[in-house]
């Protein structure tokens, strides 16, 4: 496991701070599992985690998801303003992906530089980056050979 391509030794990614609501997401990531909240009452998935279901007010529970997604949008950010990141490092491709489980169920990821991306591209999760001692789920174009969980 490495710090991933955007943390090339010149800086460290900001470290996620789990709280009472989000802790299970980060605990699962350490085990190479992607989990997302799903309402026990109405079945709606939601992310980021909240104390109650934002659709019906019910009780959300973390549920394993497939890790398959499609590309919603992306940008190549030059010197993004991120705490701890000095200027002058290579640009970074930031993406929003939609998990296949539900429309609007979106996660953010940086993506390895690649010639061409298109809205709707198939993406797949891998756990190949860290921030401090926290493992980060990251998404890769599904065609790429990513070292994700098999």
């Amino acid at each position: 496991m490495s710090d991933g391509p955007v943390a090339d030794g010149a800086w460290a990614r900001p470290v996620p701070v789990p709280d009472d609501v989000t802790a299970p997401f980060w605990a699962a990531a350490r085990e190479g599992r992607l989990v997302v909240q799903r309402c026990g009452d109405c079945g709606t998935f939601q992310h980021p985690p909240r104390a109650r279901c934002t659709s019906c007010g019910g009780d959300p529970m973390f549920t394993a998801v497939s890790g398959d997604a499609t590309l919603v949008s992306w940008t190549t950010a030059h010197d993004p303003v991120v705490p701890g990141r000095p200027r002058g490092l290579p640009p970074v491709v930031i993406a929003v992906v939609e998990l296949v489980e539900q429309p609007g169920l979106w996660l953010v990821s940086d993506v390895d530089e690649r010639a061409e991306l298109r809205i709707g591209d198939d993406m797949r999760v891998a756990f190949d980056a860290t921030a401090g001692d926290q493992v980060l789920p990251r998404f890769h174009p599904a065609g790429d050979s990513a070292e994700g969980p098999s």
């Binding site: 990614r13 900001p14 996620p16 980060w26 991120v82 705490p83 930031i94 953010v108 940086d110 921030a131």
Partner: peptide
């Protein structure tokens, strides 16, 4: 930096 709250799901990815 650290990334608390919803920033935890975005800032580590720049």
């Amino acid at each position: 930096g650290t990334a608390p709250g919803d920033a935890a799901f975005a800032a580590p990815y720049c």
